[in-house]
Design a binder for these strands. Structure first.
Lengths: 88, 88, 88, 88
DNA sequence: AACGCATAAGTAAGAC
DNA sequence: GTCTTACTTATGCGTT
């Protein structure tokens, strides 16, 4: 438990500083990766690709294949019942 | 321009108050609608419907049919080129 | 439980249609309110107000006062321990 | 421009595959960093820290100091005009 | 018309 | 198991 809430200098500041710094370092790494991802998409776009479709494809490939098919089947069932199967 | 940044009582406060109140009233209405929507889904769920599919269907029906089909075609094209057409 | 997954015409379609239509009506109401909100902000902006601050203020007023003050105190404590109290 | 939309095998598939794979590799790196971040917060929490305040502090430190102070001043001005300065 | 921002939606994790 | 809460992604909007 950090020694907070009392009068005088709050103390767990070394521990606090360590936490913040570790997070910030990791967030930097995350931001760098995110930036590279954007660059890849930007390059793809300049080569005529549709980035929205690319992003969608990446997200689909990340998901569990079985569950994806189940969800798709359920959606088609509902769409059929509503007479708008063409939407899915 | 609101009369701000000077010493003494900031003045556009009547105007400011009006803005805030109008927004808050409208946000209440929005929140009420959102709550009713959740209730409809909750009832649907208790009747055995899959709410995820219901939500997806609603969002599909909201979109422009033509654009939807174009996007779908593009995605399938990419998926086919990658040999994972079954995902879409 | 909707009568789905069998051969022949899926049947709970009346119930399904009712659900979808009720949701869509409510979403319309929600969208109308959201549009009015945007109009209020747009008008405020044209009168020289900073909409970001207005939005922030609205969101603050929506929250529980007590919890807000507690959170603020905790944040200030941490910021003080890090020597960046000026940020909060 | 990818050679798509014609009959026969769509061709830019090598290029497409390269894009997807590069993105997926980078997303992995991003996810790893995100996971480490969560671990740091989990450890902090087990040591008695309030993670919400920690996250808030990290996000504040990420922002431009000058702009932060400007925004804060504007918000306080509005809050004062509304008589709810205690919220900010 | 493309860019970034800001809101909203969907998703996944965690608490009760 | 449900329900909230936070994070991620997606979309729309305003700006340049």
């Amino acid at each position: 438990m950090p020694d907070v809430g009392h009068n005088g200098p709050p103390i767990a500041s070394d521990q606090l500083r360590s936490i913040i710094e570790r997070v910030e370092t990791l967030e930097d790494e995350k931001a760098v990766a995110a930036e590279y991802i954007n660059e890849v998409y930007a390059e793809a776009k300049s080569n005529g690709f549709d980035t929205k479709s690319l992003r969608k494809l990446v997200s689909l490939r990340k998901k569990d294949r079985t569950k994806l098919l189940e969800d798709k089947a359920m959606l088609e069932l509902y769409a059929a019942a509503l007479g708008c199967l063409d939407l899915v």
